[in-house]
């Protein structure tokens, strides 16, 4: 017998399939590179923010240092490609695994910290990473690395003429992270994570392995964030520490989830779909001349949504919480 809960979960899958189908068809009629660019960034941030959501939304460990894992992914695939000729697909996997390992190593001491002390530690670790990369001569220091683009190729994952291949990869990544979140939500880990988020002490007294739960969430979250980083490096074909590892990135990864609905299955995607086009459009239509109108508008939108809809915009359309308690 299918319970209401199982029905709702099945409906989520159907909605997801429909959304993916629409997203596959969406760019087919669009030849404008500028719009394609916005689409790529939108699905990329949906994927990144969902990855962030796994650790910070579901498990409640607010990280504002995910730029570290993003940067590690970007540099791992790029260094392996530029220095050793290893194709980015292997570099991507290596970056993901390396970032997950780093997340476990720094998580070991950091997960003993609570609340703001943890969040500041994540910021500090990302800043240390930024400074190290800025001073690492092998990785090009502040001037960064250029990915050689010889022509359109899936082997080296570089495309000159169209942005569409990048779009479909990013869409695939967003779909995979969504599916992973979907399955975790109803698994042992999903319940552990939410228990840790809601009340760590109570969770512990009920036998939840709090520390291992946090470590697992951090590893999964860092892995997918790094994959996103490798993707971004291929997409822009030039990286430097200031473009892949700055604090701003950490905030940008968190923002869609917060705007859409933190700790929910659809929050990051909804947030990215609203925020990223808005960011890009205000930047190009209001950003001219460095007058700061784009910043004023963008900042005001973030502020108003945070104040008016603390549960996120998703709560406007859903009556019940999408995730079971």
């Amino acid at each position: 017998m299918a319970s209401a809960f199982e029905l709702r979960r099945r409906n989520q899958l159907i909605i997801a399939a429909a959304v993916v189908a629409v997203m596959i068809a969406l760019p087919l009629g669009i030849k404008d590179v500028y719009i394609q660019n916005i689409l790529v960034l939108t699905v990329m941030y949906a994927a990144l923010s969902q990855s962030w959501n796994i650790l910070s939304g579901y498990c409640g460990q607010i990280s504002l240092g995910h730029a570290l894992y993003f940067g590690i992914g970007a540099y791992a695939s790029t260094l392996l490609f530029v220095k050793f000729g290893i194709i980015p697909w292997f570099g991507m996997a290596a970056g993901g695994i390396f970032a997950a390992a780093i997340a476990l190593i720094v998580g070991w001491p950091c997960f003993r910290l609570g609340g703001h002390y943890f969040t500041i530690a994540t910021i500090v670790l990302a800043e240390i990473g930024l400074i190290l990369f800025l001073n690492w001569s092998y990785a090009g220091e502040a001037s960064g690395l250029q990915i050689p683009v010889s022509g359109d190729s899936w082997t080296t994952f570089t495309f000159l003429r169209s942005k569409l291949p990048y779009y479909y990869f990013a869409l695939g990544l967003a779909a995979v992270v969504w599916l992973v979140t979907y399955f975790i939500e109803d698994s042992k880990w999903g319940y552990y994570w939410r228990a840790v988020r809601e009340n760590t002490l109570a969770a512990q007294s009920l036998g939840v392995q709090v520390f291992r739960s946090k470590m697992a969430a951090a590893a999964v979250s860092a892995f997918f964030t790094a994959i996103g980083g490798s993707f971004y490096a291929q997409f822009v074909s030039y990286i430097d520490p200031d473009s892949v590892m700055v604090f701003q990135f950490s905030l940008l990864m968190a923002l869609p989830a917060v705007i859409g609905g933190i700790g929910t299955l659809w929050g990051p995607a909804v947030g990215a779909a609203i925020l990223i086009p808005l960011t890009e459009l205000t930047r190009s239509y209001m950003g001219g001349g460095g007058k700061g109108f784009d910043l004023i508008f963008y900042g005001a939108v973030i502020m108003i949504i945070a104040l008016a809809r603390p549960e996120g915009l998703l709560s406007l359309v859903t009556r019940t919480r999408p995730a079971p308690p």
């Binding site: 784009d294 963008y298 900042g299 005001a300 939108v301 502020m303 108003i304």
Partner: peptide
Amino acid sequence: FGLAIVIRGLAQF
């Protein structure tokens, strides 16, 4: 954070 961005924008303006 939104407030911070608004203030930066105002300073640029």
